[in-house]
Amino acid sequence: MTALTPAQLDRIVQAALDEDAPWGDLTSETLIPATAQARADLVAREPGVMSGGAVFAAAFRLVDPRIAVEQVVPDGARFNAGDRLASVAGPARAVLRAERIGLNFTQRMSGIATLTARYVDAVAGTRARIVDTRKTTPGLRVLERQAVRDGGGRNHRFSLSDAVMAKDNHLAVLTADGSSVTDALLAVRERMPHTAHLEVEVDRLDQVEPVLAAGVDTIMLDNFGLDDLRTGVALVDGRAVVEASGGVNLDTVGAIAETGVDVISVGALTHSVRSLDLGLDVVVGGP
């Protein structure tokens, strides 16, 4: 797990603000008096799971630190359509300038958290953990990973620097000289830091034993059918963490979990998510 730091938060949000108003907000600066004040509520248009409260607040703080932000619904909490999630109050020009960026981040993060919660609910009662993948929006991984956690999911390795994860193309190169998979992986073990985790992907049952013989920590059963997943779990028999990947959606994840796997990785949590419908409504008669 990689926690979202204040420095990362400000860097990402400031980049978005600079993109959105590189020379100021021409509309608000033309239409809205400099002395005008505004209060607005972040309101849910549909039910979901809250995520991105700190990012939402940062958008307003970085535009004008005089804006007060109150988060009503905490990250990770479920809400209904019509619920007030947060409120902002301060100089109207600044509120309007920050509105779109604050919404963009919070809508996407809440969409990820909401979808993740649906997957987590679908495997309730099994041993399986729902985890994300590296199929994230470039530059926004730390936010999207936080949203997965807010939805009750777990994080896979954060980056290529965090673990050794040998997939089919890696194994093809490793064994091109005629080495066995076991010998190649044992050689990898010798070169790895002693604190590093070794995961290996297999796409056939006959690869399971040679990979386990190398003492891997996690074995990924990629695009296995349900019967082969059950067989694979039995073959591993607790000698490694078993991860299932490929062909995972809300219709299939429950049955996959019931095969006894430990981890189910779901790329759709971040690469195919729909942003949640949230709105920022200016309150008539606000300050």
Results as ranks from 00 to 15, higher is better:
136 T>M: 01
172 A>R: 15
98 A>S: 05
97 R>T: 15
202 V>Y: 03
203 D>N: 12
140 L>D: 05
33 P>Y: 05
21 A>Q: 14
150 D>L: 10
153 G>A: 09
282 V>W: 01
196 A>M: 13
139 G>S: 05
286 G>P: 02
4 L>K: 11
229 L>C: 07
196 A>D: 14
142 V>C: 01
154 R>P: 04
193 P>F: 08
98 A>D: 02
106 T>W: 00
184 A>L: 04
237 D>L: 08
287 P>F: 09
92 A>K: 08
71 Q>C: 15
60 F>G: 04
208 V>L: 10
154 R>G: 14
111 G>C: 03
87 S>L: 05
89 A>K: 10
82 G>T: 09
207 Q>D: 05
51 S>F: 01
35 T>E: 15
47 P>I: 10
266 V>R: 03
99 E>L: 10
258 E>T: 15
14 Q>V: 11
275 S>V: 08
9 L>W: 02
179 S>T: 10
126 T>A: 08
203 D>T: 13
84 R>F: 00
260 G>K: 06
256 I>A: 02
168 D>Y: 14
287 P>D: 13
279 G>W: 02
260 G>L: 02
280 L>D: 00
70 E>P: 03
240 A>T: 08
168 D>R: 15
180 S>V: 07
225 G>Y: 02
198 L>G: 05
88 V>R: 01
1 M>D: 12
263 V>M: 07
17 L>P: 03
174 L>D: 05
211 V>P: 00
81 A>T: 04
163 A>Q: 11
37 Q>I: 13
18 D>Q: 14
227 D>F: 13
263 V>F: 03
48 G>P: 00
244 A>P: 01
125 G>D: 09
152 G>Y: 06
243 E>V: 04
162 D>V: 12
151 G>W: 01
190 E>H: 13
204 R>Y: 08
170 H>T: 10
235 L>D: 08
112 I>S: 01
31 L>G: 11
102 G>S: 09
255 A>R: 13
268 A>S: 09
222 D>T: 03
152 G>W: 11
50 M>L: 11
213 A>D: 06
67 I>Q: 02
130 I>V: 10
55 V>G: 00
41 D>I: 13
115 L>Q: 06
92 A>G: 07
93 R>F: 08
65 P>M: 13
54 A>K: 13
68 A>N: 11
215 G>I: 07
275 S>T: 11
164 V>T: 14
54 A>Y: 11
251 D>M: 14
196 A>F: 13
36 A>M: 06
112 I>H: 02
131 V>N: 05
156 H>K: 08
197 H>K: 14
119 Y>A: 06
124 A>V: 15
116 T>G: 05
246 G>Q: 04
176 A>Q: 11
34 A>M: 14
279 G>Y: 03
239 R>C: 02
83 D>N: 10
15 A>N: 11
47 P>W: 09
164 V>R: 05
202 V>M: 10
28 S>C: 07
48 G>I: 07
182 T>P: 00
205 L>V: 09
269 L>S: 01
37 Q>S: 12
